[in-house]
Amino acid sequence: MDATPVGETLRDARVNAALSWTLLASVAAAAAASAVADPVWAGLAAVVALLGAVPAVVRRSLRAMLPFELLALAALPVLARAFDLPGPSQATAYFAVAAVALVVAVELDAFTAVEMNVPFALLFVVVSTLAAAGVWAVARYAVDVLLGTTFLLPPRPATEAALAAVEEALMVEFLLSTVVGVAAGGVFELYFRRVARPRDRLPGVERP
């Protein structure tokens, strides 16, 4: 792959690590700041921050970080939400979920016996995004039924119309997660083809 100037800069582990740590610190701060007001997004931010720190912990080196633009894909939606930037929040959320799935794929490949090529990683990302929508829906529903909360369900006693509206909204959410998951897969495919193979930059990982 021919190295563009940008790619060259980023291939330097120190510059990359500095950028990545800055992103992680911002995400962690966003998680802490919104923990009470916006617990769901704070949770997502915390997941991004923890996953981002995994390479450094596993390699016991501050320089071992994911490619910074990969982290940025996961971090930007979370930060945008924290700073109240405009944008369709549900679509942003599922894009963040897809980016998290990609980070998981890269880390599984780098640090465990699991090995993936790009096509399988993309399949993994799309499938994980859809599954996240399903699990998230069931989790909200279960908590609502058991504890009487209103994460998904309308306030009780619920009218037929209110329930139908919730179901419709959920179907639209599922549809959205499908569209965003597939679109994110497309973006990542471009990223892998044009920008970099994350393995090339993770210190201590043998190149194939």
Binding site: V127, T129, L130, A131, G134, V135, F174, S177, T178
Partner: peptide, 11 residues
């Protein structure tokens, strides 16, 4: 994979 297919089916 199966949970994802379930969501796709609902869609």
């Amino acid at each position: 994979f199966t949970i994802a297919a379930g969501v796709l089916w609902e869609v």
